[in-house]
Write a protein that binds this DNA or RNA. Structure first.
Lengths: 223, 223
DNA sequence: AAGGGAAAGATTGTATACAATTTCCAACCC
DNA sequence: GGGTTGGAAATTGTATACAATCTTTCCCTT
């Protein structure tokens, strides 16, 4: 299994809070007071403080000494900037794999996600519940590539760059069938480029893929 | 001034510990016990714990629940991987600036660093103390570019990617005059590319610049 | 009434006490 | 002897008490 067997309140609180921040539960600028959070989460201030510090490191909160933590505001520019960073990171991932060639394990994993994508597109129009399946598939595709690079820092940064409220839960909201199809096409080309050891093409298409997602977001995001 | 006026023991301990880790004061694998650190640093366990958690997030320490923190080992592969990541990040920085054109402020800052580099190379052979000057100049060059992008995540990641013991203090140790000259040439070309709005060239040369540094490291680093 | 400033309240920072878990070691069984 | 079990010691996790800092309020001065 993939699960974390051991945990602590501190870690649990961190992830619970992160989730709530990513859901956009707190308005930007809101000050997160330790005592308030502590009693609300049925826990002492100690694990709360540790969680807050970590989430600030992740860029979700802002911190000022003796003044505590507040919820960070993400402008549209911030979000697009994050996409740009992520695009070169994942682009690099594809390039590295294309250079050395795909392992059979990666080839199979990606093939499975492509198949899943194909199936989801068959129905003609993605239903409510299928959004989640698509999101799963998409996440699996991108993560499989990253992990195969065995570049620890690359994986960490790419994961971290997705820590943006709202964006990485409901962003497929805006997608029409046409957009899903295009994303699927991108995935296929990326796969093909890596399979045929075309680093430049793999890198470029991954950047294109991610920045197109940013473009759609830009068109629809209001704030 | 640039200084942080307000601070806390927690923050001070974090930076002090980070510095010592970057100096390679602790052998990889060493377990850092809270009580030991606490009495050695004349402070209670509380700020120590917060520091450890942050440094683990920065990738300098490894953490296991209920087992505490230990000093991370960086293989040569880890280090080169980090350089590769940094190269695409800073490459992106150059690209972004080349696309939109340099501000006069950046142009002046970079010109100053280039001049400093020129002067340091004049003497024919860099002396002991001049290594630090070169390091300062180099840091200023790279940081000025990053900051000008106004891409928060990019700056954070690029800075974080330098958090590797030993490497980013004494790496110029291996440089011959020839290598310093080559680095200086790179800086000049990067500046020129950005000044003439050549994004592709600026990006490429920054990657070349950083990966060449990695190459020198690879040749000389033993462990 | 506007501004300044001191005291009270609220909030964060730090130390310490206690709880939970792991580690170590020795006795024991097979 | 190899391995296991039990428990004591050590270490981390959590709660709480206290200290330092910031915030607010209200009174005073001009």
């Amino acid at each position: 299994m993939t699960g974390a067997l051991k945990s602590t309140r501190s870690l649990n609180v961190t992830e619970a809070l992160r989730e709530r921040l990513l859901q956009g539960e707190f308005d930007p600028g809101t000050r997160l007071q330790e005592t308030w959070l502590a009693e609300r989460m049925q826990v002492s201030r100690t694990p709360i403080r540790e969680a807050l510090r970590v989430l600030a490191k992740d860029g979700l909160l802002e911190y000022a000494p003796n003044r505590g933590y507040s919820v960070r505001h993400f402008s549209l520019d911030d979000i697009v900037s994050a996409f740009r960073v992520r695009s070169v990171l994942e682009g690099l991932g594809c390039r590295l794999i294309a250079e050395r060639g795909m392992s059979s394990g990666l080839s199979e994993s990606l093939h499975a996600t492509l198949q899943t994508g194909e199936n989801l597109l068959q129905s003609g129009q993605l239903q409510r519940g299928e959004f989640d399946e698509w999101r799963e598939m998409n996440k699996a595709f991108h993560l499989a590539i990253l992990l195969e690079t065995h570049n620890d820092l690359l994986v960490r940064f790419a994961k971290q760059s997705r820590n943006i409220p709202i964006v990485f839960n409901g962003s497929f909201r805006w997608y029409s069938l046409r957009e899903f199809q295009r994303a699927h096409d991108h995935h296929q080309v990326i796969f093909d480029a890596m399979a045929n050891q075309q680093p430049e093409r793999a890198d470029f298409m991954m950047q294109e893929h991610i920045m197109h997602a940013a473009l759609i977001l830009k068109k629809n995001y209001n704030d």
